[in-house]
Design a protein around this nucleic acid. Structure first.
Lengths: 196, 196
DNA sequence: ACTCTACCGGAGGCCCACCTCCGCTTCAAC
DNA sequence: GTTGAAGCGGAGGTGGGCCTCCGGTAGAGT
């Protein structure tokens, strides 16, 4: 199970160059893009990203011919990390495993909102990411549901959208964000009889 | 109470021109802007908005010197409608009144997301809108909370952000959106003892 | 009907981000 | 060390949205 692979796996890093300087630039660009997208949203200027990465604009375009390529690569990278996490938490208690995974999922969503939005729907990489996310997190959800911890009239997709919606919103502070997320998750859990 | 006024009231419509043709253009621009923002987000081209409204770009700039003016006016308009609704539902059952109001609130948020985002924080009109929203919806919330329908460890601001976050997300269909919103609101309500 | 004033429209200049292109540089294989 | 292929970078052309400005037009008061 530790060697399970997800649809995203092959799509990402496939084009990372092999020459040393080129690989370094590629990584620097990806980091700069992640940062810029988190900061300025999807309209971050590509020239600024190149500048942050300390490379010329030409190098950016060679690695990522279009803005979309950059989005997709940044996004797929994150999804990959989420998939790995899902495997790591698989042996914990049903609800706890799901909660830990969701927590990390929520964290990613904060900064990735812009990228997600820009990709929405029209990208096959995005579709693969979606698939991977379901392959990775779905089992955690199903297990929690079968253990009677999650209300039966809910689907995994519902949960992901609920969490990402809440995380995408601007809150006064992290405490409020956590509070709201917690309240919403209370709606997700099965209501145990107080007497039990 | 029916004549209660909210902070937004004076800000909006204050600059609507009096001459007949000018007023017509003003309204057409506002409608076009609402539509364009809902469709293309905050970066909708101003020239396109003018075109939709059937007026010249000069007319747009005369009425709304900056993009921000347009945002603010469109947004304040919606908030106004929400304030009016709050007064109308005030005599229903506590939870029902809140739920009806939230439902409308949610509807507005779907299309107003982009505008909200663009204004966030840095605008005094936005602050006034916020204030009005609290003045209008807050009492509904407090009443439901005092009636024991809403969990006590929650604030009105938490609820607004929760709902707007969920509504801002893209769902597969309206049914899924409603389902998720319903689940989240289940977390908001007090858990009644099953025996009661 | 007449005037005068407020308002209209869009041509055109400005600016900024996008993207291409090519002479120079660096890597790595031999 | 040599060499050629892969990679680098940024100058500059292009496109499109932003906003100003002013000659023409249409409402409102008399």
């Amino acid at each position: 199970m530790t060697t399970q692979s997800f649809p995203v796996t092959e799509l990402v890093a496939a084009r990372r160059p092999t020459r040393k300087d080129a690989a370094r630039n590629y990584d620097a660009l990806l980091d700069a893009a992640r940062e810029a997208f988190a900061e300025h949203g999807a309209e971050a200027a590509l020239e600024d990203i190149a500048r942050r990465a300390g490379v010329g604009i030409g190098t950016l375009y060679r690695n990522f011919p279009t803005r979309r390529h950059l989005f997709e690569t940044v996004y797929a990278d994150e999804v990959n990390a989420l998939c790995r996490l899902a495997l790591e938490v698989a042996d914990r208690e049903p609800w706890e495993a799901l909660a830990v995974w969701l927590d990390r999922f929520a964290g990613y969503m904060v900064t990735k909102r812009a990228v997600r939005e820009a990709l929405d729907g029209e990208s096959e990489v995005f579709a693969a990411c979606r698939e991977s996310m379901f392959a990775a997190g779905g089992p955690l959800f199903t297990r929690a549901q079968e253990a009677g911890e999650v209300r039966p009239d809910m689907e995994f997709g519902d949960l992901l959208r609920m969490v990402s919606g809440i995380m995408a919103t601007a809150f006064e502070d992290d405490a409020q964000r956590d509070r709201v997320l917690g309240i919403a998750l209370d709606g997700v859990r099965v209501r145990k009889d107080p007497g039990a």
